[in-house]
Amino acid sequence: MHELPATAPHHTTTMERGSFALARCSCGWSGPARRSRDRARTDATDHERAPSGGDVPA
């Protein structure tokens, strides 16, 4: 998988997998599966705001 440079902007989306929602990013990051769509969106926002696009605490 091709990863974007650390300086590239992060573009996140949320997707559903069965009864779970999860956040994904153009950099290859994927958040944990959540039952709450709102929590998955918060994971995506937190990832975008992290200084290096780092992991979001579970």
Rank of each mutant, 00 (worst) to 15 (best):
T12W: 00
G31K: 03
E3S: 15
T42N: 07
C25R: 06
T7Y: 09
R49Q: 02
G53Q: 03
G53E: 04
P51D: 10
L4M: 07
M1A: 15
E16K: 12
R24Q: 15
P9A: 02
D55A: 14
D46S: 08
P32I: 00
P5R: 04
T14H: 08
E48L: 00
V56G: 05
P9F: 01
H47Q: 08
T13K: 08
C25N: 14
H11V: 10
T14E: 05
G53A: 04
S30F: 08
D46C: 10
M1C: 14
R24N: 14
R34C: 00
A6S: 14
R39F: 02
G18F: 10
A50D: 13
R17Y: 08
D38Y: 08
T14G: 10
R35Q: 07
T12M: 00
T12A: 06
A21G: 07
A8W: 00
P51F: 06
P51L: 02
L4K: 12
G54D: 14
D43A: 05
T42R: 06
L22V: 04
R41V: 06
M15V: 10
A23M: 01
L22E: 07
P9N: 05
G31S: 06
T14C: 12
G31V: 01
T42W: 05
R41K: 14
S19D: 11
T45L: 07
A33T: 04
R35I: 01
D43V: 03
S19R: 03
G18P: 11
A21Y: 08
L4F: 05
R41N: 15
E16L: 05
R49D: 01
P32R: 00
S30R: 13
R39Q: 05
D43N: 13
P5K: 04
R17T: 11
T7W: 06
R41E: 15
S30V: 12
T42M: 04
H2E: 11
T7N: 15
A50K: 13
V56Q: 04
G53K: 02
A23E: 02
C27T: 12
D55L: 14
T13L: 06
A6E: 13
D55P: 13
A33E: 06
D38I: 00
R35G: 06
A23T: 03
T42Y: 06
S19E: 09
H2G: 05
A6M: 10
R35S: 02
S19G: 14
G54A: 07
R24C: 15
P9Q: 04
P51G: 07
G54P: 14
T7H: 15
P57R: 10
R39A: 00
E48F: 02
